[in-house]
């Protein structure tokens, strides 16, 4: 009896995770498996879909654009999130709460509605363009351009950059800066030699998350963008729903999957090591 109960205790934890793993298997692993399978087997067995993907100019243009939009969105997020997260980490409790609220408010309305707001603001007769005109500037085409997509995506993804950055910055001991200053270091030098390196793990974690999420973005580029700013997700949807070409759509999906997890695999060991370092200094 004690033996079986001990065995039960050892296996118990695994049993507890089985229902969740079953959901994952049924609704994620099997569907993704089907996609991979079809990319190699439809219409006939072989690599034809991949050859087609990498030999068609439109596809490569879109793939490159997907990466470049994601890159610029990530850069914009880092630039905007850095001062903001810094202010959050040094502000008093009340101001900090207000700053956190501003980060969370965008989550209070549904994602689709938020994109609607950007359509309203960016349209040719929208607020931004009318403000520009009244200030004597020329009209800027924002809607259905890459610029518009980048502006909208950056706003949607900014919280994912601010939060990890804030978590790391909060753990930085500000007395290190005082020490450097008291030893005669210039503020600029103090920042670049002490604060920036200590905050880099947060930048790295946030940038990885933002870049990966941006690669798979669908709704925002679809509603804010035009033919000149199509991203890979839209192309996949077109292949499957409009052209009913599961093989080609599947191959595109596999390319996007490999890109996403490839970047994650490259970045994650890096992130872990850095995180332990920042954890150690806390």
């Amino acid at each position: 009896m004690p033996n079986t109960s001990a065995q039960h205790a050892a296996r118990g934890p695994l049993y507890l995770t089985l229902p969740a793993l079953a959901v994952l298997l049924l609704v994620m692993a099997v569907p993704l498996g089907v996609i991979v399978l079809r990319s190699f087997s439809e219409p006939e067995l072989g690599l034809a879909n991949y050859v087609w993907f990498f030999q068609t100019k439109v596809n490569l243009t879109v793939l490159l654009r997907t990466f470049s939009i994601s890159f610029w969105v990530t850069v914009c997020c880092v630039l905007a999130a850095y001062p903001y997260a810094f202010a959050m980490s040094v502000a008093g409790p009340r101001l900090r709460l207000a700053l956190i609220m501003c980060v969370l408010v965008p989550f209070w309305v549904s994602g689709v509605v938020r994109t609607l707001a950007w359509v309203i603001l960016l349209q040719d007769s929208g607020v931004i363009n009318r403000t520009l005109l009244s200030l004597g500037f020329d009209k800027v085409r924002l809607i259905r351009t890459q610029l518009g997509v980048t502006i909208g995506m950056t706003q949607v993804l900014l919280p994912f950059m601010i939060m990890p950055l804030y978590a790391v910055m909060r753990s930085i001991d500000l007395r290190l800066l005082q020490a450097a200053r008291s030893l005669g270091a210039h503020p600029v030098k103090t920042f670049f030699q002490i604060y920036l390196p200590l905050s880099l793990p947060g930048v790295f974690a946030g940038a990885t998350i933002v870049f990966i999420l941006a690669l798979g973005f669908y709704i925002t580029p679809l509603l804010l963008g035009g033919p000149q700013s199509t991203m890979l997700s839209t192309l996949i949807q077109q292949q499957v729903l409009s052209l009913l070409n599961w093989g080609r759509g599947g191959a595109m999906g596999v390319v996007l999957l490999v890109a996403t997890f490839g970047i994650l695999a490259i970045a994650s060991p890096f992130m872990k090591r850095k995180y332990q370092m920042s954890g150690g200094s806390r």
Binding site: T17, L24, P31
Partner: peptide, 26 residues
């Protein structure tokens, strides 16, 4: 434990449209 946790969090990372196409197929 860490491995299963990592597996259970993957739905957050898989690109939405790829997952949607797969689920639609099934």
């Amino acid at each position: 434990g860490g491995l299963i946790r990592a597996v259970l969090i993957t739905p957050m990372i898989v690109p939405g449209v790829v997952l949607a196409v797969g689920i639609y197929a099934v």
